[in-house]
């Protein structure tokens, strides 16, 4: 958390979205959305339910193709033909289900589907010592000290589980992490845990795309704030261009919330 407010702390631009749009048939799900993701920065994508957050990250993560605008990765325009293509460019998505098996030990989950082995032929076997060591080391780098990497993932708190998923994505070569509502299902304290890991990832030089509907979660960690409402951009602000009160105001539809507050006040009296 070393960045001075307002000063960009990030490195080079990894992803640049230029006036991205996406239609589902006649329905415009997303229009004219622009933002940038830099190495060592957190780009927050804020919006209420149905604002177009998930459509936007599906474009970034290669699940959907955009219909308008340009997606520029490392300076060259790209059209991803699947999540694997995005992954190959180092863009990894941590979904809400985290792709974890609760009854399995942490280290087995960490390497699930990409297990390290040694020996060959019928003697090809898991390199347990190395996987356990790497799991522990990667979790430490995330600032999480679990001591016992054999405990089942199901015994971890929601925040810790998120951090294992993040550490796993980082270990397998992610330069940009897309975190889909990582704090949505968590209590205040657990959300705090996850925010710390987001900061940890940022300080290791990763670009983070943090999707949330909670401006109180976004403001402390964000370097850039993209606000979406009904598929359109309400603005793409750098840190310092907007304060928390403004974020809350814009997020909640500003005027609409004023109206609501007014109405509720009137009902009470």
């Amino acid at each position: 958390m070393s960045g001075v407010d307002g000063a960009p702390r990030g490195g080079e631009v990894i992803i640049e979205a230029r006036r991205i749009g996406k239609d589902y048939g006649n329905v415009t799900a997303l229009a004219d959305v622009s933002t940038t993701v830099r190495a060592g920065e957190v780009t927050c994508v804020l919006g209420d339910n149905g604002a177009g957050k998930s459509t936007f990250i599906k474009v970034l993560s290669g699940v959907h193709r955009h219909d308008h605008g340009e997606l520029v990765v490392d300076g060259e325009p790209v059209v991803f033909d699947g999540p694997r293509a995005a992954l190959e460019r180092g863009i990894a998505t941590v979904h809400q289900d985290l792709a974890m098996v609760p009854l399995m030990p942490i280290w087995r989950n960490f390497f699930l589907g990409s297990e390290l082995t040694r020996g060959r032929g019928p003697l090809r076997r898991l390199d347990v010592a190395r996987m356990r060591a790497i799991t522990r080391a990667e979790l430490l780098r995330m600032g999480i000290d679990l001591r016992d990497v054999d405990q089942p993932v199901g015994t971890l708190s929601g925040g810790e589980r998120q951090s294992v998923a993040i550490a796993r994505a980082v270990h397998f070569g992610a330069r940009v992490l897309i975190l889909d509502e990582p704090t949505a299902a968590l209590g205040v304290k657990q959300a705090g845990v996850v925010l710390r890991y987001i900061v940890g990832a940022r300080e290791r030089g990763l670009g983070v795309v943090f999707i949330t509907h909670n401006p109180h979660h976004a403001h402390p960690v964000g370097d850039r704030f993209l606000l979406l409402n009904r598929g359109r951009s309400l603005g793409d602000f750098a840190r310092g261009e907007v304060d928390r009160a403004e974020l809350v105001h814009l997020m909640s539809g500003g005027a609409e919330l004023d109206e609501l507050a007014h109405e509720l006040d009137r009902d009470r009296s």
Binding site: H95, D97, L98, A99, M100, V101, P102, L103, M104, R108, F111, L112, G113, S114, E115, T117, R124, R125, L126, V128
Partner: peptide, 21 residues
């Protein structure tokens, strides 16, 4: 001690997550 073993636990424990991995 094998990858197949890991997959057996994962397939039975949470097939969807296993597939995603």
């Amino acid at each position: 001690r094998t990858r197949a073993g890991n997959w057996i636990f994962a397939a039975g424990g949470e097939a969807r997550s296993a597939r995603h991995s």
